[in-house]
Write a protein that binds this DNA or RNA. Structure first.
Lengths: 367, 367
DNA sequence: CTGAAAGCGCTTACAG
DNA sequence: CTGAAAGCGCTTACAG
């Protein structure tokens, strides 16, 4: 036998036609039981595997999903946001369980993702993770919708978004974190992170934060807010800025764990104690949050569930089934940086339907 | 225009044959300049992309590499070893830079990787990352070599290994870490991690550790060694075990950062101070090592360089060029857990040639 | 410099 | 239940 055997080789050895080999291998019910067994045995003996390229070409499918990871350009090359890494892990696992391969790639906003992946039949659909500025990103999403690309993204579920998304309930998360801080008797609570349309997830967290303050009869103090992207460095800077303004501050709610960790460092650098002087709460519950000193109280996002939903939703889109955006309930993980110890709180799940006609629009765009 | 345009559509519109379209798109020098321009313009207009499945089928290549990640089965699902995650990042980037796609997958030892990826033309070669027990793993490597699979793995560069590997110089790393601890005046230095053929990398680190002790006229004390796989939990247990034995101990060299972090926790739990009572040094320099309290002194592995070498070496194998195993120099990152502050040390690079005839053997195995 | 033709290895209507 | 045949969309010798 020269080289890799093909289905014709199997056919000859099994004494059937090549077509029957194909049918047997794909498990068609029509194939006679004994014939199938014979074919399978020969295939096993020759270590035969179906050529993916040929089969994909014929069926016009790829059995592959592509995960496109956008990185904040300011982040150090080697340090991908750990939260995304954990999403990556759960997406990979979910794909494997469903028999799909996963292509992964770090992306810049400049590429034509549709052409790069789905159009050339490398992947049946795309999963989008992370982005820099949402306002830039949004136009790329619109282009994908216009091209009829199958895609889901992880991110804030917004009313007018192009396509659909799976994301945490950031408002609920901000609310829970801030309420918890208030329950510890904190009153001068700061917010670290961008709170604008450029970063919708952070904005939602900020809105939850503001809502909790208002519930308690307080108003968010602009002196206690500082912008930050999701890095330790930005967290350090933002906390430093707030402290330098001199306004009293007894707690900080950071829009991400990375920001919180940087903030704690800034606090320590000034001789302030966490949580005695300033309580700190983060967001994401990255693995590192358990190892900080003190361990970081944070809002956990269920990456495992998120990964499964992302994959399942995308697969449904590929099969042209009905799909909708989903908001996942966050969970407050109380550790020590907030100055308390109590049971984790839960908030209920929420499901936001896809804007009417979005699916139809996509289908039309393709024809 | 119905659906995705193919090369024949382009040909018609450009007024040439389909073959010429293919040549122009692939940049064949033979194509007339003006003809090429015309074809490219039409292709751009129609948003044409070459169908990967068809082109791969024809050329019998995939332009894709597969990254197989083996996880320690004992590790919690959601927590992939951060060191592997950072390797994953650099491998992904290296692939993208070289125009290759990357398929990623978590693997169990039970699968037939050759059949799953290379044989069915999903990938041109495999990158192997992580493993449980090397002794089990080794037989799988032998099978790959026998099947003529193109693969490289990250791991200890061993004299009699099947195939080749890119790995850190673990002996040098263990030596540097332990010498540094000795230089701080520590004498009762423990080792946390498996030191057996089941875990060759840890074994090499242990050998470096033992060599440093011997240089200083000391002997490794078995009471100060405890087995551990690379998890915080195992590190906690191992440190606890050593402490419970009651032997005096003023420093711990952990075979990985995760182990070191677990060990520090065990130390704190017993009211011991790091580094005052017990100095701690880890291995890997995962991102978390900077955020521990105190920040962890550790042996850094250059994941960025490693990722590039892994990809480049594999690509050379695929092109049937000469390749060899490579040992990368580690770098001691001095932070505070060791009780010192000084410049990082460097050790020189080492290159280990592939055992004679290994490449030829591979080629023969395939025919 | 370009075209006509073969063929990569499958899958699936169409017949029987 | 099975076979003969067409065709998925390319790439590349072979001719000219």
């Amino acid at each position: 036998m020269k080289g890799k055997p093909n289905s014709l080789d199997i056919a000859h050895l099994a004494g059937v036609s090549q077509a029957t080999v194909s049918r047997a291998l794909r498990g068609h019910a029509s194939v006679n039981r004994a014939t199938r067994e014979r074919i399978l045995q020969v295939a096993r003996q020759l270590n035969y595997t179906v050529d993916k390229n040929a089969s994909n070409l014929r069926t016009q499918q790829s059995g592959t999903l592509a995960l496109l990871l956008f990185e904040d350009p300011t982040i150090d090359e080697s340090n991908i946001n750990p939260f995304f890494l954990s999403m990556l892990g759960s997406i990979t696992r979910a794909c494997a369980q469903r028999g799909y391969d996963l292509l992964i790639s770090f992306q810049q906003l400049s590429r034509d993702w549709h052409a790069d992946y789905e159009d050339c039949h490398k992947a049946d659909g795309l999963i989008l993770l992370g982005y820099g500025d949402y306002l830039d990103y949004r136009s790329r999403l619109e282009a994908l919708v216009a091209q009829g690309t199958h895609f889901v993204r992880w991110g804030a579920v917004l009313a007018d978004q192009p396509g659909l998304s799976i994301g945490g309930d950031n408002h609920a998360g901000g609310l829970a974190a801030t309420r918890h801080l208030l329950a510890q008797g904190r009153r001068r609570i700061g917010f670290l992170g961008h709170a604008s349309l450029h970063a919708p997830e952070f904005l939602e967290r900020h809105q939850g934060y503001a809502a909790a303050l208002r519930e308690a009869g307080l108003t968010p103090d602009p002196l206690l807010q500082a912008d930050a992207i999701s890095t330790e460095g930005a967290g350090y800077e933002a906390a430093s800025l707030v402290l330098e303004r001199g306004a009293r501050c007894d707690a900080l709610f950071a829009a991400s764990d990375l920001i919180a960790i940087g903030a704690m460092r800034a606090l320590f650098a000034r001789g302030l104690r966490v949580p005695e002087d300033v309580a700190v709460v983060g967001y994401d519950d990255i693995p590192m949050a358990q190892s900080t000193h003190p361990p970081l109280t944070t809002v956990q996002q269920d990456t495992r569930h998120a990964g499964e939903l992302l994959v399942d939703t995308l697969l449904r889109m590929v099969r042209e089934e009905d799909v909708q955006s989903i908001k996942l309930p966050p969970r407050l993980m109380v550790r020590q940086s907030c100055g308390a110890a109590q049971q984790p709180a839960r908030t209920p799940a929420t499901v936001t339907p896809l804007p009417a006609g979005a699916r139809r629009a996509r289908r039309q765009a393709r024809s």
